[in-house]
Design a protein around this nucleic acid. Structure first.
Lengths: 149, 149
DNA sequence: GGTTAGAGTTTACATCTGTAAACGTAAAGT
DNA sequence: ACTTTACGTTTACAGATGTAAACTCTAACC
């Protein structure tokens, strides 16, 4: 007797759907009017388009609905940070293991980070350094093949 | 008089196409037989499928072809690191600016990095720290709205 | 109580992706 | 020269995604 069926929270959120989720994550909950209003100010999408995105997010278990009079209140069923982690990690997982470090360097270079963020990253990295391997092997070729990019 | 038409190197590489690109990036160049052979060992795809992917990559300007007898030699037209950066950055760009730091922390936690990588990251971060803002504002809502996630 | 507006649902449709068979053609072997 | 191979191209097709109109109700207003 689960509250929500929660068959599998793990349906990937598409690029367009991210825009909707960000609104709901930030507000905590929102009705469709609010979502449509705010998303329209960021993207040149018709209300109908945003309705479709909301519907798909509900169907894929990313948003919960609570009846409120004639309309629904939408709330996130998956945490924002978890969605971000999943998105980043799946992207990284398909890249050469050996090159991921450099990818981080470049991504971090191009990202505005707060002093606190940076300090936390440094701390984590220093901790990670204590158990880090000397080298990471390129995993672009199948088992048994040599090569590195 | 460009060597290659290079209309726009910026066509995104899809998940399946990454598998092909990684082989070519690692080998520097490869004929289709080699690509099909190696990719088949990593993915349960038919040769025809891999041929399709190669064809699409050529069409979208990610791979160059050089005739060699009855077949082609394929070479990357976009650098691996650039593709990785683009993929990561576009992912990050659609996430809340305020949460990106934490996303990095989590992603780095789940990624194996070499001592050298980590040290380079720390150095970069220490450098970045000198000009970092105290806080990053949540940019999930449209201009003029308050809110943070 | 009848009308209406607006919320959610259905339907639509082109393009992109993943996956693959079929085909045309020229090189390679006999 | 003839056949076979196999490389690249064309075609196929279902499901995902972006984008949006049309439709169905029911709650709200007069």
């Amino acid at each position: 007797m689960a509250i929500t069926e929660n068959t599998e929270i793990t349906e990937a959120i598409t690029d367009a759907e991210w825009a909707v989720m960000r609104i709901v994550w930030t507000l905590g909950e929102a009705d469709s009017h609010t979502i449509i209003d705010l998303v329209s100010q960021q993207h040149d999408w018709k209300a109908a388009t945003i309705k479709t995105l909301i519907g798909r997010l509900v169907k894929k278990g990313a948003l919960a609905t609570t009846k409120n009079g004639r309309q629904f209140i939408y709330t996130p069923l998956i945490p924002e940070q978890a969605a971000m982690d999943t998105a980043l990690t799946s992207q990284l997982d398909q890249m050469c293991a050996m090159c991921r470090g450099q990818a981080f360097v470049n991504a971090i270079d191009q990202t505005e980070l707060s002093q606190t963020d940076i300090q936390e990253l440094i701390t984590h990295l220093q901790e990670k350094l204590t158990t880090a391997p000397t080298t990471i092997t390129c995993d672009c070729l199948p088992e048994g093949y040599e090569g590195s990019c």
